[in-house]
Nucleic acid binder design. Structure first.
Length: 414
RNA sequence: GUGGCUGUAGCUCAGUCGGUUCGAGCACCAGAUUGUGGAUCUGGGGGUCGUGGGUUCAAUUCCCAUCAGCCACCCCA
């Protein structure tokens, strides 16, 4: 291992990639704000229990994917493997139950100890949206509509489909689980090894299996949708009606299940074919039991998370950022005036690049390379006349402009 | 965590059936062009051939290990 290699599954995000990431999160943040979601930030690490207790002792995230270590005080700390638990913790720490409904947007790095692949990293970034404190399917509808809106704005409407399912309330799920286990016990020997383990721990997940034998068995299995109690059925029907009203297209997938223990009712996933075996781009669901699980009062919650890297791989080239004006001093005498003018123009709101060295030719090359819209040439001749030569880098036209009206003249490039 | 493929310049890739100094395009730097960029031409820098060990007179080439990337699984954003 060379020490110059970044840690496995981590990545330097260089300017080009960074611009794509920024476009993704900027777009999402702006649209979330227009839905009334404010941005918050929680720490990137928490006490281990925050995640261990809520994600479920048997979930893959807890059993093998967390970056956990003891800090110098001897506390067990975990780098966040998801946003929801930390946000729920923040909800309680800050007494936000008083301010219900709480609607938040969050963005930042997430850590999972997994074997990396394309679209799958050990440190990656998520966008996250949560609504806490609202029972009933209205926030579910809003949160999904918001997700669809963001994906649309990123130009991904045709690359993604919304798959939707309900997990029902805990009563429905308990009844269904018994029914499913009873069914599967007859086929135990036809299940894959993995699925026999799942049968003990989380039988619903067998629906996810890509094993042909499992799939054959599951094709005949009873479905949760058919076991829903009335309350769960009403919830789901209202959700579907709401999505129709909001103009959000979806595809029902009765086999869609979620890996984490705290989910109930609404489960959804925007999936794509374009990312290899990494199908999920944005996924989420309802987690009414989570806050209670952490020791708070029962509080309904719904939210989703999206992978920034995955989205960034799918979008087209983001819109170009501001082209700079380049200040070009000619000769040593003009240096300090160039510096003064540069600051003046920057404070006037222009994007201005002042090179560190070089003669006129070099500086012009540099201006070209940074895709400058204009160059302000400042030689001793100009300086004597209290003027500068402004060259339009696209047309090549140039004219002499009095220093006093430089801002005015350059206003067209803002 | 399991199985497979890959690893030569900043990038994309040649090459050596084991044998003197590993090449090209792009990129970078300099000059032609000392008050003017994009084009062109000329020249230049840059490689412990992922890392460590083994076999051999000789290894970038063969073998083993290791690290990393990719693919499938597991699972997920």
């Amino acid at each position: 291992m060379s020490s110059l290699q970044p840690v496995r599954g981590t990545h330097d995000i260089l300017s080009d990639e960074s611009r794509r990431h920024r476009w993704v999160s900027k777009t999402a943040r702006a649209i979330a704000a227009s839905y009334g979601y404010g941005e918050i930030a929680t720490p990137i690490f928490e006490f281990t229990e925050v995640f261990a207790r809520t994600l479920g002792e048997t979930s893959d995230i807890v059993t093998k994917e967390m970056y956990t270590f003891d800090d110098r005080g001897g506390d067990s700390i975990t780098l966040r493997p998801e946003f929801t638990a930390g946000i729920a913790r923040a909800f309680m720490s800050n007494g936000l139950a008083q301010q219900v409904p709480v609607k938040v947007f969050c963005q930042g790095p997430i850590f999972r100890y997994e074997r990396p692949q394309k679209g799958r990293l050990r440190q990656f970034h998520q966008l996250d949206v949560e609504v806490l404190g609202v029972p009933g399917p209205l926030p579910d509808i809003e949160v999904i509509a918001l997700a669809a809106h963001i994906l649309d704005a990123l130009g991904l409407r045709d690359k993604v489909v919304l798959e939707l399912n309900t997990l029902g309330d805990s009563e429905s799920r308990k009844a269904y689980r018994a029914k499913l286990v009873a069914y599967l016990n007859d086929f135990r020997d036809r299940l894959s090894e993995d699925s026999r383990v799942r049968l003990e721990r989380n039988p619903l997940r067998i629906f996810d299996s890509k094993d042909k034998g499992d799939q054959a068995v599951m094709a005949e299995a009873p479905l949760l949708v058919d076991t829903l109690n009335d309350a769960s059925k009403v919830f789901f029907d209202e959700l579907l009606a709401g999505l129709d009203a909001a103009g959000v297209a979806y595809r029902l997938n009765p086999r869609l299940v979620r890996g984490l223990d705290y989910y109930c009712h609404t489960a959804f996933e925007f999936t794509t074919e374009t990312l290899g075996s990494q199908g999920a781009v944005l996924a989420g669901g309802r987690y009414d039991g989570l806050v209670e699980m952490m020791g708070g009062r029962p509080t309904p919650g719904i939210g989703w998370a999206a992978g920034v890297e995955r989205l960034a791989m799918m979008i087209d080239e983001p819109p170009a950022e501001a082209r700079p004006v380049v200040m070009v001093p000619i000769g040593d005498e003009t240096r300090s005036l160039a510096l003064e003018l540069t600051q003046r123009l920057r404070h006037a709101g222009l994007t201005v690049d002042l090179g560190y060295s070089g003669n006129l030719g070099k500086r012009m090359k540099r201006a070209n390379k940074v895709n400058a819209c204009a160059a302000v040439l400042l030689g001793e001749d100009e300086m004597a006349r209290q003027a500068a030569t402004v060259r339009d880098m696209d047309s090549g036209e140039q004219s002499e402009v009095p220093l006093a009206s430089l801002e005015n003249h350059l206003a067209r490039y803002r």
